[in-house]
């Protein structure tokens, strides 16, 4: 569903952000993206949601190629992805439910569908009781739940999480992580960038490790199917990863 083929990214200044990176992610997989700051984790996520384009190589996401995709096709692709950030990226003047509804409104969802879908997803993240609270009235963990709800409300194929627990304490981190696992258990792939090595090591999930723009370790590489099989329509979720502790 996501496939990087010899991808490099060079920003106008500095060293290459990514250097010849290749990997693929199946439907329904849970993958950690680790490495020190500046290793290229965020760049990989940005390439997936087409916030930037590769300098060379090809990024394929949900059948769309970075080589052939036009700017007009980007919004349609983004509606099939959910993105979550360390700083939540919520609109401060809107309530939790308005923040979630915003994602549906701007994509032209019929108004009658918006209410029920927002309520459903807020229940899923455990915030139904705080639907009318403004972001500043919520704790960091709760704000991240709103952000996750917003990312999920369009039923994405994959949830991209860029250091989602970076601003949270250990206990809250566990809660958010559990939520991401629940999301994954329902069939949504999760790609989570983190430098929380303790969290990564405590779990047997597939891990991609980056260092200075290079992919130095892929715990799932040897166990993976071929690229051709991955692109087959309807490739099911990777059961092993979904069931991991």
């Amino acid at each position: 569903m996501i496939r990087f083929t010899h991808v490099g990214k060079q920003y106008p200044k500095g060293d290459p952000a990514l250097d010849d990176v290749s990997f693929h992610v199946n439907r329904g997989e849970f993958v950690f993206l680790t490495g020190p700051s500046g290793a290229g984790k965020s760049t990989i996520l940005k390439l997936i949601y087409v916030d930037t384009r590769p300098t060379y190589g090809e990024v394929r996401v949900a059948g769309q190629s970075s080589v052939t995709m036009s700017a007009r096709q980007i919004p349609a692709l983004r509606r099939r992805l959910g993105v979550v950030f360390q700083d939540f990226q919520l609109l401060e003047d809107r309530t939790a439910e308005q923040n979630v509804a915003f994602a549906l409104e701007v994509t032209g969802t019929p108004p009658t569908q918006i209410g029920p879908r927002v309520a459903r997803v807020l229940t899923q993240v455990g915030l139904a009781a705080k639907a009318t609270a403004l972001p500043h009235e919520l704790s960091g963990g709760e704000q991240q739940r709103v952000a996750i709800a917003r990312a999920l409300v369009n039923d994405p194929l994959v949830l991209l999480a860029d250091e989602p627990t970076g601003n949270l304490d250990t206990r809250t981190t566990r809660g958010i992580f559990q939520l991401l696992r629940d999301v994954n258990a329902r069939g949504t792939a999760v790609l989570m960038a983190t430098h929380d090595l303790a969290l990564v090591k405590s779990l047997d999930f597939r891990t991609l490790e980056l260092n200075q723009g290079r992919l130095v370790y892929d715990s799932g590489a040897q166990r993976h199917t071929t690229a051709d099989e991955l692109d087959r329509p309807g490739a099911g979720p990777d059961v092993r990863d979904g069931d991991a502790p």
């Binding site: 919004p75 983004r78 509606r79 609109l91 994602a103 701007v106 994509t107």
Partner: peptide, 17 residues
């Protein structure tokens, strides 16, 4: 710009933004 960023992120078309 934050609002614009979020709109883009959730897949709003440029025309809509």
């Amino acid at each position: 710009s934050r609002e614009i960023r979020i709109m883009r992120l959730v897949g709003a078309t440029n025309q809509f933004i």
